[in-house]
């Protein structure tokens, strides 16, 4: 039986107090096993990132407990929590968050000094990840010379360098075009399948649903069952992809009409030449 690596028991997070209290996450229970790719979806402001931050030991829940690889993190001190993050969790962010002054390989090795192997010991793992993610030729490149897809692949390699059992990804395809987004999703899918990592991904991207093992629907801070009829498909005017209007976070208004996009990249293109895309829909 596959081991549960990440568990949340009735966790809640409230911000503010009294009448201004906001319940960002309210009584969430979940269990994630090794090798699972789990999506957290839901409308904007539903508490997805707050939940991800708590599961990543970056934010303490107001109540409830989080167990990472058998350790209840509510009793762990800040310094030990940082060490636990370094060894158990890999983060992939929407904005890539690479360190500007470091090359691709230096970025990947950045968390390695906190891992069990150390920076020198992780060199073999680095080569393996560079090959696997098709970054060997770009290993000496600085982030400002990398494409969006390359940046996200570097960020994924960085998340994997310490061989963490859990990968938390926050909108990893949000800043990528559809082709690059597809590529990143397949990498994350392979990480779950081949490496046995538990991959928990917050996303608005409906294309990921096809490769996910489970989809958790977060609404008003609580997990709910997701009904298929809640889709409202529209077409991205830039790339022509199908986008669920109900869950989309990238949208704009032009001439009193609402336009929904699969990614912020498509939005940027639209904003540069709105007339062109409106007239060619």
């Amino acid at each position: 039986m596959t081991k549960t690596i990440l568990q949340a028991n009735n966790i809640s997070k409230y911000f503010g107090s009294g009448v201004s209290e906001v319940r960002a996450v309210n009584g969430v229970n979940l269990k994630i096993k090794r090798g699972e790719l789990v999506l957290i979806m839901g409308p904007s402001g539903s508490g997805k990132t707050t939940l991800l931050s708590m599961l990543g030991a970056l934010l303490s829940p107001t109540s409830g407990e989080i167990i990472i690889d058998g350790t209840d993190i509510s009793s762990v001190k800040e310094a030990a929590l940082a060490a636990l993050r370094a060894q158990k969790i890999g983060f992939v962010f929407q904005a890539f968050n690479l360190l500007e002054a470091l090359t691709a390989e230096e970025n990947i090795l950045f968390p390695a000094q906190l891992g069990t192997e150390g920076t020198q010991g992780a060199k073999k793992r680095l080569d393996e990840l560079l090959t696997r993610l098709g970054l060997t030729a770009r290993r000496k490149a600085l982030p400002n010379t990398l494409s969006g897809g390359e940046k996200q692949r570097v960020a994924i390699a960085r998340a994997l360098i310490n061989r963490p059992p859990i990968i938390l990804a926050d909108e990893p395809t949000g800043n990528l075009d559809s082709h690059k987004g597809q590529e990143v999703m397949m990498i994350l899918h392979d990480i779950a399948r081949d490496d046995g990592c538990a991959v928990l991904m917050v996303t608005h991207d409906p294309r990921v649903e096809e490769i996910a093992d489970r989809i958790l629907w977060l609404e008003d801070g609580a997990l709910r069952d997701r009904k298929s009829e809640q889709h409202s498909w529209v077409i991205d005017p830039v790339c022509g992809m199908r986008v669920d209007e109900w869950t989309a976070s990238v949208m704009t208004e032009y001439n009193d009409k609402k336009f929904v996009f699969c990614s912020s990249r498509c939005l940027s293109r639209f904003e540069a030449r709105p007339e062109y895309y409106v007239n060619n829909r």
């Binding site: 940082a82 060490a83 370094a86 968050n97 360190l99 968390p111 906190l114």
Partner: peptide
């Protein structure tokens, strides 16, 4: 600051 946040997120301590 953003890079510090990343450093903290990946597991570096304040000290």
């Amino acid at each position: 600051k953003q890079e510090l946040a990343i450093a903290k997120a990946v597991g570096f301590s304040n000290s």
